[in-house]
């Protein structure tokens, strides 16, 4: 049953996207925490960390933006998962109805199955049409979420410079800059993994290994 292999790879890809997104969300929350921590340190440092104070607000904004985008991406990923389940069920129904047609050749009411088979094929085709559009939307959103991650890396670089002028607070603020930089790198990597998994589905959806119905 070829559609099972096809659907299985889709299920695995969509599940792995959900796992990566969950990690992105956690890292974004860590950034938000780091921003709050940095703000407290900068406040205590007073004049010595004057240049650092506005940076903490930027860090916090970037974390918020990332979290908001991940929430939207999660919703889209859930839609993609539901569409995958629907397509899988319809593919199974097509196959089972065709088996029933083959088994009931002499049945009095064999023709009555035709309408159900046509309807299931139509619904499956509709799913297959929707699939690449939804994947494209997700890819675009994942591209968007890379922007705050890139900006966070720039801010981390600036933070290091500002931290170096903060006297006895230098070490604490450099640690903040370091954690933002690491978090941004993790988000970048996780989102790349999502895009890679999605691109695989994208390819499969446009060039399905299973037979399609007109």
């Amino acid at each position: 049953m070829m559609h099972q292999g096809h659907s299985k790879s889709q299920f695995v890809a969509v599940a792995s996207i959900a796992a990566e997104l969950s990690a992105v969300m956690n890292v974004a929350k860590d950034i938000s925490l780091a921003a709050a921590n940095a703000k407290a340190i900068a406040f205590r440092a007073g004049e010595k960390a004057k240049g650092f104070q506005p940076i903490t607000d930027f860090i916090n904004e970037l974390a918020k933006d990332t979290i908001q985008l991940v929430v939207i991406i999660n919703q889209k990923a859930l839609q993609l998962y539901q569409l995958t389940i629907r397509e899988h069920r319809l593919a199974e129904a097509c196959e089972q109805f065709e088996n029933a047609v083959a088994l009931c050749d002499a049945a009095t009411y064999a023709d009555s199955l035709t309408q159900s088979l046509v309807l299931v094929r139509q619904r499956r085709s509709e799913c297959q049409r929707q699939f690449p559009h939804l994947v494209a939307e997700l890819l675009a959103l994942l591209s968007d979420v890379m922007h705050p991650a890139r900006a966070a890396r720039v801010i981390a670089a600036n933070s290091r410079i500002e931290a170096s002028q903060a006297g006895e607070y230098m070490q604490s603020l450099q640690a903040v800059a370091e954690s933002v930089d690491n978090a941004a790198q993790i988000i970048h990597d996780k989102v790349q993994q999502c895009r890679s998994a999605l691109s695989q589905i994208h390819t499969d959806a446009y060039f399905p290994s299973t037979k399609t119905f007109s």
Binding site: Q96, A100, L113, Q115
Partner: peptide
């Protein structure tokens, strides 16, 4: 399903 179609339409 095939067996049922001997006795009734869908």
């Amino acid at each position: 399903l095939a067996a049922v179609l001997h006795h009734a339409p869908v």
